[in-house]
Nucleic acid binder design. Structure first.
Lengths: 116, 116
DNA sequence: TGTCTATATTGACGTTCATCGATATGCTCG
DNA sequence: CGAGCATATCGATGAACGTCAATATAGACA
């Protein structure tokens, strides 16, 4: 569900070292796409979510384990998880009543490649 | 000259591979600092500014050369340059009537190190 | 000193966003 | 089926943000 309009890969035509990045002038369209991806992580709560998933032993974590360490309400956590999912940074897997989330490593590497 | 409250280095106590990053759970304070730095680049205009500076032959570029390729008004460009400067990502050097801007490589590396 | 030019600041406006309470959806299990 | 729990969605609210026109600041130069 959801529009998920932000999944556009940020690769394009740049040099090898920094294919998605700021090594050479960016067109407005690509700049908008990169900014959209960056906005998804430019929030304290979402950074904490990513770090919690990343640090989990099994590489995935249940949604129910987020609210307490973040000190946020359940709807707010759900909202942030949706933003990260729509941005392609995490993957959601329904398992019975629970929702489990794991990192999408490729998308995370895209982030690191923006400033190289 | 602006408050520049965002210059806090984002290093801290993480592992070697990802000292400022999301390799392990983040405290709220550090998450806020990292998010602040990310917000500075999570904007199409500012990404284009960084890319233009990065791609310039001399490694620096005059403020007067930004408005045209970006299609923004002069005050808006000035505002974005201030945001990037306050975030420590670029450096401003006054030279006569003109202002020249160059990249702060260390701060840019901090960005890349967040997602490693 | 006065005029021109480059840049910064101010003030305003519309948009986006983070957050929450209330409610809806959907699965589990008795 | 019905009760209970986990998660998502809705609607509202206050804050932050991007942008511009108007104005201020400040250096260059005659």
């Amino acid at each position: 569900m959801g529009k998920s309009a932000t999944q556009i890969p940020v690769v394009a035509t740049g040099p090898q070292c920094c294919p998605a990045g700021i090594a050479e002038p960016m067109e407005r369209d690509q700049a908008t796409a990169v900014a959209h991806l960056l906005k998804a992580v430019a929030d304290p709560s979402r950074l904490q979510l990513l770090a919690l998933i990343r640090a989990s032993d099994a590489g995935e974590i249940c949604a129910c384990d987020f609210t307490e360490p973040l000190g946020l309400s359940q709807p707010t956590v759900s909202h942030h998880l949706k933003v990260l999912t729509d941005a392609g940074l995490i993957r959601r897997e329904q398992r019975g009543t629970w929702a489990w989330f794991s990192i999408e490593p490729d998308r995370l590497n895209e982030l690191a490649a923006i400033f190289c």
